[in-house]
Design a protein around this nucleic acid. Sequence first.
DNA 1: GTAAGTAGTATACAAAAGGATAGTGAAAAA
DNA 2: TTTTTCACTATCCTTTTGTATACTACTTAC
Lengths: 121, 121
Amino acid sequence: MGKTKETNQHTLDECTKSILPVRDALEVLSGKWKLPIIISLMFGNKRFSQIAKEVPGITDKMLSKELRELESNELVKRTVYGSIPVVVEYSLTEYGHSLKIVIKTLRDWGVAHRKRMMVES
Amino acid sequence: MGKTKETNQHTLDECTKSILPVRDALEVLSGKWKLPIIISLMFGNKRFSQIAKEVPGITDKMLSKELRELESNELVKRTVYGSIPVVVEYSLTEYGHSLKIVIKTLRDWGVAHRKRMMVES
DNA sequence: GTAAGTAGTATACAAAAGGATAGTGAAAAA
DNA sequence: TTTTTCACTATCCTTTTGTATACTACTTAC
């Protein structure tokens, strides 16, 4: 009786210790568009319309909203050049680049997942 | 002129090659609850109400919905024992366990992210 | 003169995700 | 006898996400 309860408590603690940081990460990264936008910026600094072309399916409204969120989380930097015509460049911050390994891992899993789905169908 | 266009086309292709698999992964994993549920099952097979206790804040409705989706993607297995009372056990499939590295990477980033936020405030 | 590109914003709407609360029916514990 | 446990489902509601379309004001190219 005591044993079982202690064991449960122990795994619950360990469980929480894993869930909380993952939840912190998800708060910043979750949604359909943030990671694709970051991936596009990993290949170089881009302007608004360039990102729009490279992230298939995104609308201007979503891109603008997501860029603002990424900027407020210090993952992306926005720089304005000149005034006529206005040119705006987006780039990854150093912190944004720290997501490289997360993206690589997720990408590898995604590749395997797609293969698996192909075989099944 | 030709050079610039070729270069752009090249990075666009590479970019797409990264975005598509990440998008495949996100389709299965995105949302607030799926990864936390999987983490809870990484610590052992569980019954419905046990998962509900270990994933802080989740409602029965969300848990039931997410478990069904995870099952249909073959990440989670649902087993019914006996009939009175009904006992249902959830477990990770082997495929579900392949997410271990994804979760570890995300967790590590989340830990660093939380530290960073603490320092800032 | 017209179209396309620059970086977005405004508006209206539909769909999906998530939250709060209550209820089911049978059994076992208080 | 009332409560608790089990594994959910039902209903209603709000918030978030996403889509579609049009618009701004200026410049360059055709």
